[in-house]
Write a protein that binds this DNA or RNA. Structure first.
Length: 463
RNA sequence: UCCCCGGUAGCUCAGCAGGUAGAGCGGGUGGCUGUUAACCACUUGGUCGGCAGUUCGAGUCUGUCCCGGGGAGCCA
């Protein structure tokens, strides 16, 4: 089954050479002049290859003229300059073999544009469209860039557990993991008897690898995780998934300043990588999805991010002429409308907000000297909102203990996390980046369900 | 979970003030052309989201449930 990928043929354009190509038919147009044009795509790149099928081919009458959108074919022939507009080269087939038919009466994809809503209902076929093919390639390229960025900086890739026994990390509702027969759950009086469950205690899918990443940062120095996380929140928005991928670097001997520098150079690295290596797909998004995405990424590369404190942000919002639905007051968390106003109207580019009030942030963030704020940073981008949340971590044992109690959590559940502060504690910091939200930002796609192959949302686990 | 909007042919939608359904695309057939979201002609195609109700009569009005979208909350 030797073949040459379309990406290689179309980039090298070796006219005169002989190739074997395989792919899925996008369209067939017949010429009664005695041949057919068949466009195929094999997913290796956005572009299609036009194949010229002459009527002298032995199966022209019974097969080739019946080839429809969705069929998979194998074609061999020589590459020629194309006299037509729309493509530089084309393959003149010497042989065409249909590998798999696609009944046109029931194959749901047309040559025409479909709505994203409809394509979500056929998630098994939507990667064959231009948009979803491009998203998949971008997603893959970004994954590679994430690893190379960290590896070049000598971070170690850490695998944190998917199933955890930490019942509360303060990050949303948990999916429970059990082997119980839910019709007959063992009970100890009123309560569920978890001693009889697989782990002998309650377990759940992870909502974040951060606490475990801190463990390894306090031994290896710089580590990062890149894996799936799960939130059972009943969130029905274009920015939330029940299963999403998160990147979480964690650095020992690092403060908030270093954390912000890492976040900024990280995003710049990813964006530069995309602009350099994913020209065709990025141009596609810029043309058909959002005509500002390339300019936005270039803007980040040249100008970086606006940085301000939470307190400064509140001052700007308080002076704004705009009427907000939610009140602006120091101590309140910023609402979407506030974040959007700052990002999209005041600064018109990504912003980093630091030093949030302690009461609106999790227990593990380091308390500032003022005792009122914590060393937190949120990175907000236009359209998508928060894509990074990070902080310097609390490294003082007593302060952390107090903060855990303040949050209404049981210190016993965090004994090992607390021990990191007891034995050789050190300043450290890290952040979490929502991978899908980053893809939304770079592609311009407005619904997060369209940047992950098989989205999981409340009421939907199809495919 | 809350607030808005929507669910009509395989897809995208129209159907104005209740009188039992239309277009474009797709599919099929024929024609035409180095075509390229091809084009032209003909043709195929629907228990109008489900269940109740009002009415002589419901795609159209009412209730309710389900599903989808946008926004909000929660967050990444």
């Amino acid at each position: 089954m030797k073949r040459t990928r379309l990406a290689d043929i179309l980039s090298s354009k070796k006219v005169g050479d002989h190739f074997v190509v395989m792919g899925w038919v996008r369209t067939r147009r017949d010429s009664k002049g005695g041949f057919s044009f068949i466009e195929i795509n094999d997913g290796s790149c956005l572009k299609n290859l036009q194949i010229i099928a002459d009527k002298r081919l032995s199966n022209y009458g019974d097969e080739i003229v019946k080839i429809q959108t969705g069929c998979s074919i194998r074609a061999s022939g020589a590459l020629f300059h194309s006299p037509g507009k729309g493509q530089d080269v084309e393959l003149h087939a010497e042989e065409i073999q249909v590998l798999g038919w696609a009944d046109p009466d029931t194959y749901p994809l047309q040559k025409k544009r479909h709505s994203f809503e409809f394509l979500r209902s056929i998630a098994h076929l939507r990667p064959r469209t231009n948009t979803f093919g491009a998203v998949a390639r971008i997603r893959s390229a970004m994954s590679l860039a994430i690893h190379t960025f960290f590896q070049e900086r000598r971070f170690f890739y850490l695998h944190t557990p998917i199933i955890t026994g930490n019942d509360c990390e303060g990050a949303g509702e948990l999916f429970k993991v059990t082997t119980f027969d839910l019709g007959h759950v063992p009970r100890d009086g009123e309560d569920v008897d978890f001693k009889k469950d697989f782990f002998g205690r309650p377990a759940n899918l992870t909502v974040s690898g951060q606490l475990e990443a801190e463990v390894y940062a306090m031994a290896l120095g710089d580590v990062y995780t890149f894996g799936p996380t799960f939130r059972a929140e009943n969130s029905n928005t274009s920015r939330h998934l029940a299963e999403f991928w998160m990147v979480e670097p964690e650095m020992a001997f690092c403060d908030l300043e270093g954390d912000i520098e890492l976040a900024e150079s990280f995003l710049k690295y990813i964006f530069a990588h995309l602009l350099e290596n994913c020209h065709e797909d990025m141009a596609f998004f810029n043309r058909f999805i959002d005509s500002t995405v390339i300019e936005t990424l270039e803007g980040v590369l040249s100008k970086g991010f606006e940085r301000l404190t939470y307190t400064e942000a509140i001052e700007i919002l308080a002076k704004a002429e705009r009427k907000f639905q939610f009140p602006v007051a120091w101590g309140n968390d910023l609402q979407s409308e506030h974040e959007r106003y700052l990002c999209e109207e005041v600064f018109q580019r990504p912003i980093i907000l630091v030093d949030y009030p302690r009461q609106i942030k999790p227990f593990y963030m380091k308390l500032n000297g003022d005792q009122k704020t914590v060393r937190a940073m949120d990175l907000l981008v236009p359209r998508v909102g928060e894509i990074i949340g990070g902080s310097q971590r609390e490294d003082d044992y007593e302060t952390l203990l107090t903060r855990i109690r303040e949050a209404g959590l049981n210190p016993d559940d965090y004994w090992w996390y607390l021990e990191l502060r007891k034995f050789g504690t050190a300043p450290h910091a890290g952040f979490g980046l929502g991978f899908e939200r980053l893809i939304q930002f770079v592609t311009g796609l407005s619904n997060i369900r369209d940047v992950i192959p098989f989205p999981r949302t409340p009421g939907n686990v199809s495919f």
